[in-house]
C-alpha cells in the first residue's frame, strides 16, 4: 500500500539551515547535508530544501549544496526557492535534485510549469502555493508570503495541475508557525479535487496533527520543519504513532 510521506523541510540561507517562524524571525539550526542524512536515517520519506537567500553569492552556495546533498542523502529530495526561469532549474536537476519546487515565478509566469514539465517530466515539478484565508477565501501570496495576489488557492492549484505540475505543496499561512495543526479542510478539498499528490504544510505541533492531516485532511504527504529540527517530535515515534492510528507509513 502506498505510504503517507513525512517530509522535513530545511530552509537554507547562505548554505546553512535556518527556520523562520511565520516567515520571519529566522534562527540557524545546523548543517543541511548532515541534517538531511540524519533525517534519512531516522526514517524521513523525503526532504525539501528551500533556498531563502536573496544574494547572488548565496545562490551559488545553494547549487553546490544540492550536489553535496545528492552525494550523501539516499532518499528523494526537492529543492526550491528563487527559481525564476528554466535556466535556474537546469543546474539544480543536473546536480542531482529529484524535484524542483517553484512558487512565485509560476504565479508570475504560469508557462514555466509547462516548460519544466516538458523538459524533465511532470514528476520533477512541485508547485508550491502559500495561501492565506481572508475575506472568505484562500488568497495566493508570493515572495515568501509578503505580496498578496488576486489568485485563489483552488483555481490556481487546478490550473497548475493542468499545466503539468506533478505535485502541489500547499502552505497555509494562517497555520504556519502556530503549532495548532494543519489546514485540514482546505487540504482535503485540494486533495480530493486534484489528480496529483498534495503535500500539506504549516501548523504541525503535535503527532495528532499528522493523524488529522492524513485522515481528515486526506493529504498524501505532510511537511514540517521546526518540530523536527528542534527534536520536539522524532520521526520514528511519529511513524509508530501513525501506524497505531491505521495510517499507512513506511
Amino acid at each position: 500500500m502506498l505510504a503517507k510521506r513525512i517530509i522535513p523541510c530545511l530552509d537554507i540561507r547562505d548554505g546553512q539551515t535556518v527556520k523562520g517562524i511565520n516567515f520571519l524571525d529566522i534562527r540557524e539550526v545546523g548543517d543541511p547535508v548532515e541534517m538531511g542524512a540524519e533525517y534519512a536515517r531516522a526514517g524521513a520519506d523525503e526532504l525539501v530544501y528551500l533556498d531563502i537567500t536573496a544574494t547572488h553569492e548565496g545562490r551559488n552556495l545553494f547549487a553546490n549544496l544540492v550536489r553535496k546533498i545528492a552525494e550523501h542523502v539516499n532518499i528523494p529530495f526537492t529543492v526550491g526557492g528563487g527559481i525564476r526561469d528554466l535556466s535556474d532549474v537546469d543546474p539544480l536537476l543536473n546536480a542531482g535534485a529529484d524535484k524542483v519546487s517553484i512558487n512565485s515565478a509560476v504565479v508570475k509566469n504560469p508557462d514555466l510549469i509547462g516548460q519544466v514539465a516538458r523538459s524533465y517530466g511532470s514528476q520533477f515539478v512541485v508547485v508550491a502555493i502559500d495561501a492565506n484565508f481572508e475575506e472568505d477565501d484562500w488568497f495566493v501570496y508570493v515572495n515568501g508570503g509578503r505580496i498578496k495576489t488576486k489568485r485563489r488557492l483552488f483555481e490556481w492549484a487546478r490550473e497548475a495541475e493542468q499545466r503539468g505540475a506533478g505535485e502541489i505543496l500547499f502552505t497555509s499561512m494562517n497555520h504556519d508557525g502556530t503549532k495548532n495543526g494543519y489546514a485540514n479542510q482546505a487540504t482535503a478539498q485540494l486533495s480530493t479535487s486534484l489528480g496529483i499528490p498534495v503535500i500539506a504544510s504549516g501548523g504541525a505541533g503535535k503527532m495528532n496533527h499528522f493523524v488529522d492531516v492524513f485522515g481528515e485532511g486526506e493529504a498524501d504527504a505532510a511537511l514540517a520543519a521546526s518540530i523536527f529540527h528542534f527534536r520536539e517530535i522524532g520521526i520514528q515515534d511519529l511513524k509508530t504513532h501513525l501506524r497505531n492510528h491505521n495510517i499507512p507509513v513506511r
Partner: peptide, 8 residues
C-alpha cells in the same frame, strides 16, 4: 493519483 509517487 498519477504519478504513483512515494513509498510502496
Amino acid at each position: 493519483k498519477v504519478p504513483h509517487m512515494g513509498w510502496n
